[in-house]
Design a protein around this nucleic acid. Structure first.
Lengths: 214, 214
DNA sequence: TGGAAAATTGTACTGATGGACAATGCCGGA
DNA sequence: TCCGGCATTGTCCATCAGTACAATTTTCCA
């Protein structure tokens, strides 16, 4: 049977959690749990009230001490960045400290079965952001801007986007520096930018093309 | 009691699913389920074998027809982009068509309780990508690179990141062009880059600092 | 077969960038 | 009071970037 442990520097605000898990144990420090927690148990970690840089260290400490347990982070001031930090650090759930007892129970079921539990709204944003990021990682090669260039212009532009000089690009593509400049000049004209820095900024704007003529 | 329905154009490869849900129903088209599905039931949608642009339409159609149900996508060729598309379209789970029966049951429990179920590996990548994307949306002003610069260096760097020339930056910040160069030079040194283009690339790499000394 | 677009390349030039070497003044902390 | 870090600025110089004006060759399609 799954046991529940709550780690909270302060013990106020935990009424609802305790109602959800009457047999659950509350303590103030992670180290108090050493020897008590078994694989499959659920740890609920109350995050500090203000977003600070130590949050993921706290979660990481707990996650590493009890690898085979499920970690759920509770926050009094839920915040998207905090949520992502804690999930990245190993938490399997993220919720409000004042969730109702039924919600706590549902979260427990979800994480006990290998799932992830975060708020619906946050879920949408995470998945959406991830999709954009992962498609952007294929950018700049697939950006709208590059679609307007010839294949050779594109090849040169992609080298610029890596930070290369014209000499380096000439060597890489086995053409003269003059040819590199010609392709770049043409690309600048097509994308309405004035130099390589603006070219790269436009390329890295996924799916959009900036009109600099305005 | 939760009912399970599987929508699959082809009925091969579903042995393990049927083992997990012996009372489960298999059909070939979403419309066959109209009138049979109740809120809280779980729909398992077998995705087409090849990644194509119609996947999210199929998921969206199912998600819209049965809003109060939980949708899980099954794929014979699991793919990260496909996973994100289906999650974005409304699926709450994404797994291999040939998962074992226990895994199917766990997924059912998770999604029935409002959670998300995707593979561990994919989970890590999604959360990580989301964190990077969401912090990048605040970048470059909050990137790790900028934290190493003095406030004046940072101000100059941010102007460069907008594509400005040294002359323009001098005018904007009300200092001489020589001062702009001094601050840039110092920033180049601290971040180990050789020019403004590489500076901007580093600034736009959220949370990471590129070691160009290699 | 012919024409257009793309690729490649030349010389020459101007302006921008970045670095070298140097200096002064301000501010905050020991 | 002194020192270090930061901000600001100067002159000078080499290199790079970008543009102008021009040309030839290659490729592809009607």
């Amino acid at each position: 049977m799954t046991k529940h442990f709550c780690i909270s520097a302060r013990t106020d605000s935990l009424e609802r959690w305790q109602k959800a898990f009457p047999a659950g144990k509350v303590c103030q420090q992670v180290l108090e749990l050493v020897g008590q927690v078994r694989p499959g148990d659920v740890l609920w970690l109350q995050l500090p009230s203000s977003l600070n840089e130590n949050i993921d260290e706290a979660v990481l400490a707990a996650a590493n001490l009890f690898r085979d347990c499920r970690l759920v982070a509770m926050s009094k001031v839920p915040d998207q960045q905090e949520a992502l930090l804690t999930l990245n650090a190993g938490a399997k759930g993220y919720c409000h400290t004042l969730s109702n007892a039924d919600t706590f129970k549902q979260i427990a079921v979800v994480v006990s079965h290998g799932g992830l539990w975060i708020g619906q709204d946050l879920m949408s944003r995470v998945v959406n952001a991830a999709e954009k990021a992962l498609s952007r990682d294929r950018a700049p090669s697939s950006s709208a801007a590059l679609k307007q260039l010839t294949s050779r212009e594109r090849a040169v532009a992609l080298e610029v986007a890596k930070g290369a000089t014209n000499k380096e690009i000439a060597r890489t593509l086995n053409i003269t520096e003059r040819t590199v400049k010609a392709h770049l000049g043409s690309a600048f004209n097509k994308l309405n930018v004035r130099d390589r820095l603006q070219l790269v900024l436009v390329m890295n704007t996924a799916g959009e093309l900036i009109d600099n003529a305005a």
